[in-house]
């Protein structure tokens, strides 16, 4: 008897026993379910990807297993997994399936210019806005930050519900890491400096990270609309400049010392920024030609 014939015979004998038949079916259709199979996730990214998909993305798993039996290449398998993940994750940018071992991909989009001067190369579109806020290359960024956040508080409380004013507030909050949304406020450098930024592949963590990305991307989209407003509507840039100058003078005043030293976002609870609202002048809400897209 030849070896192929022996395999066929053993295979048919297995089918005559219910337990062995079930074992063969599991090996064929759900290989990751077999307990006791130990493997090194870094050395075996295909098995790890299947393991993750079986736990969290059953539809991808059910696509991948038959495809493997049909003999797809590693590259095709990788595409199948990564395309499937992009359907489930708000952010799924990975170089390859070997990146999956690092946990759910995370993309912090916060601005980072603390500790060094803002540069034209890094933030070419934000530098003009910083200058409107009174910043100059010879000055510390903190003064512009205080002015920017005070204006953002004023805009968000006084003009709540106005998309245009809200977008400008979103821009100012985002520029100074104060959106309140963790992935919009952390830069990539600071995020990974934390050291404990890993999220494991579990359904709960996936939902959590998707939520973090969605709120951060929404905040960023609003900030980009605010940036368009400043870039495309000269009256808004002019208003930002004059209001920033007024706010800077106001903040210097010792009578509002607590406002300048305290948490700027908490300050709105006291309505103290609103007291100067009557002196700040903003254009009307833009309705025509304002795409609001980034």
């Amino acid at each position: 008897m030849s070896i192929p014939d022996a395999v066929a015979l053993l295979s048919s004998l297995m089918r005559s026993d219910a337990t062995l038949s079930l074992a063969a079916a599991v090996a064929w259709l759900d290989p990751i379910a077999i307990p006791g199979v130990d493997y090194d996730a870094e050395a075996d990214p295909i098995t790890y990807a299947l393991d993750v998909c079986r736990e969290c993305f059953e539809d991808i798993y059910l696509e991948a297993v038959p495809a493997l039996w049909q003999g797809i290449s590693n590259a095709q398998f990788e595409n199948l997994i990564l395309n499937g993940l992009s359907e489930h994750l708000v952010f799924a940018d990975m170089m390859g399936i070997e990146d999956m071992v690092m946990g759910i991909p995370v993309f912090p989009i916060g601005v980072e210019y603390y500790g060094e001067d803002p540069s034209e190369e890094e933030y070419p579109r934000l530098i003009p806005v910083l200058k409107l806020l009174g910043w100059h290359p010879s000055l510390d960024i903190e003064a512009a930050q205080e002015v920017g956040l005070a204006l953002a508080n004023h805009l968000s409380t006084t003009y709540s519900g106005s998309s245009t004013h809200d977008d400008l507030a979103a821009l100012l909050y985002w520029m100074f890491n104060s959106t309140g949304y963790v992935l919009a406020d952390y830069s990539q450098y600071y995020w990974y400096q934390q050291g404990d930024a890993r999220f494991d592949w579990t359904p709960d963590e996936i939902e959590h990270v998707n939520g973090l990305h969605k709120e951060a991307f929404d905040a960023h989209d609003a900030a980009m609309r605010g940036l368009h407003l400043i870039e495309d509507y000269p009256e808004w840039a002019k208003a930002l400049k004059s209001n920033a100058a007024f706010m800077a003078d106001y903040l210097i005043d010792e009578s509002i010392d607590s406002l300048t030293k305290g948490n700027m976002r908490d300050a709105k609870k006291t309505n103290r920024t609103d007291t100067i609202g009557i002196y700040l002048d903003w254009p009307e809400c833009v309705t025509d030609g304002y795409s609001g897209t980034s």
């Binding site: 030849s2 070896i3 192929p4 014939d5 395999v7 066929a8 295979s11 048919s12 089918r15 038949s21 063969a24 079916a25 599991v26 090996a27 064929w28 259709l29 759900d30 379910a33 079986r54 059953e58 798993y61 059910l62 696509e63 297993v65 038959p66 039996w69 049909q70």
Partner: peptide, 30 residues
């Protein structure tokens, strides 16, 4: 599907089952 399969010399597991059936069977087994 395993019981009905035709003998495939040298193969432990079938390779000639339509993909839709394999996906349905895999879903049930999972």
């Amino acid at each position: 599907l395993l019981e009905k399969r035709k003998a495939e010399p040298g193969r432990w597991l079938p390779t000639n089952v339509p993909r839709e059936q394999v996906v349905e069977a895999a879903k049930q087994i999972v």
